[in-house]
C-alpha cells in the first residue's frame, strides 16, 4: 500500500502530462473536417481512413523509418568506439570523459543546430576547407536537405547512445578481454570474439532507444531540412499549425504513437529472448 503511494506523484504527472493530452488527441482524431476546413465534432474513423489511404502518409512513414534507422545505426556505431575509449581510460579520467560524451545534452537542440549551420552551410567550415584545399569549386550541399538532417540527427542521438553503452559496457569485466589476450587472441580477435558479442545487448538497446527518439525527432528535420525534408513529426506540425487540420494531425499522431508502442513491445520481447 505504502509502496503504491510512493508511485502516486509519478502517476499524477503522467496522467496530467501524457494520458490526458493523448486522450484529447484521440478524441480530436475522431472528429471530422468540413469542406471549408472547420473541425466538426463527430465519432468517425473517416480521418484515419483518409490518412492511411494517402500514399503521402506511407512515403512519410518510410522516410521517417529510414532516417531514424540510419541515424540510430550511425549514432550507435559512432558511440561504441567513444565508450570503448572511456572504458580503457584510467579510472580517474572516466567520469570526466563520460560527462564529455553526454555534454551535448546540456545544450539546447536549437543551439546545436545553429552550430551545425555554421559548419555545414555553403560558406561553412567544411565547404571553406574543401574549397581551400582545391577539392571542390562549388559548395557541397550539406544542409537544408536529407544529408544535413542525417548528420544533425546522428549527432543529436549520439549522447543517448553513449549513455546506454556506458551503462551497458560498464558491467563488462575487463578481465574477460585480458583472458582472451592470454589465450592468444590479438586485439582484433578479442574485440570480435569477446567484446562485441558481450556488448551486443547494450548495442541493441542503444539502437532501439535512439531509433525511437529519431522517429519522433522534430527540431532537427525541421531546422536542418530547410523545408525540403518531410517526416511524420514535421507533417503533424504542419497539419496542426499550417493547414489547421486538427483531426488529420491528431490521427497521424495516434498512428505514430501506435507504431512506437508496437516497437516498444517488440523491443521488450527481443530483450527477453536475448537474455534467455
Amino acid at each position: 500500500m505504502s509502496a503504491a503511494l510512493l508511485l502516486l506523484p509519478a502517476v499524477l504527472i503522467l496522467a496530467a502530462g501524457f494520458l490526458y493530452p493523448v486522450a484529447l488527441l484521440g478524441r480530436i482524431s475522431l472528429n471530422r473536417t468540413s469542406d471549408i476546413g472547420a473541425m466538426e465534432p463527430d465519432l468517425t474513423l473517416a480521418t484515419f481512413e483518409k490518412v492511411v489511404g494517402d500514399d503521402f502518409t506511407w512515403e512519410l512513414a518510410w522516410n521517417t523509418a529510414t532516417l531514424a534507422a540510419g541515424s540510430a545505426l550511425a549514432a550507435t556505431a559512432l558511440a561504441l568506439p567513444v565508450v570503448l575509449l572511456i572504458r580503457a581510460a584510467p579510472p580517474r579520467w572516466r567520469g570526466l570523459l563520460s560527462l564529455m560524451a553526454i555534454a551535448p545534452l546540456l545544450v539546447s537542440g536549437t543551439a546545436r543546430i545553429v552550430g551545425w549551420l555554421a559548419i555545414l552551410g555553403d560558406q561553412g567550415l567544411i565547404n571553406a576547407m574543401l574549397e581551400g584545399l582545391g577539392l571542390t569549386s562549388e559548395p557541397v550541399r550539406l544542409i537544408n536537405n536529407w544529408t544535413g538532417v542525417r548528420i544533425g540527427l546522428t549527432e543529436s542521438l549520439m549522447p543517448y547512445a553513449c549513455l546506454v553503452l556506458i551503462a551497458g559496457l560498464g558491467r563488462l569485466d575487463p578481465r574477460l578481454e585480458e583472458a582472451a589476450a592470454t589465450l592468444g587472441a590479438t586485439r582484433t580477435k578479442t574485440f570480435l570474439r569477446v567484446t562485441l558479442p558481450l556488448a551486443a545487448p547494450a548495442l541493441l538497446a542503444a539502437f532501439l532507444l535512439t531509433f525511437v527518439l529519431g522517429v519522433s525527432a522534430f527540431i532537427t528535420p525541421r531546422l536542418m531540412g530547410g523545408g525540403r525534408v518531410f517526416v511524420v513529426a514535421t507533417e503533424i506540425f504542419d497539419l496542426a499549425l499550417e493547414t489547421v487540420d486538427w483531426p488529420a494531425a491528431a490521427a497521424l499522431a495516434m498512428l505514430l504513437l501506435g507504431a512506437l508502442a508496437v516497437a516498444l513491445v517488440l523491443r521488450t520481447a527481443l530483450m527477453r529472448s536475448a537474455r534467455a
Binding site: D173, L176, E178, A179, T182, V194, P197, L198
Partner: peptide, 12 residues
C-alpha cells in the same frame, strides 16, 4: 595460461 581470481570465463 592464466587463471584469474574471478575466473574470467567467457559467459557467452
Amino acid at each position: 595460461g592464466v587463471v584469474f581470481q574471478s575466473y574470467a570465463l567467457f559467459p557467452h
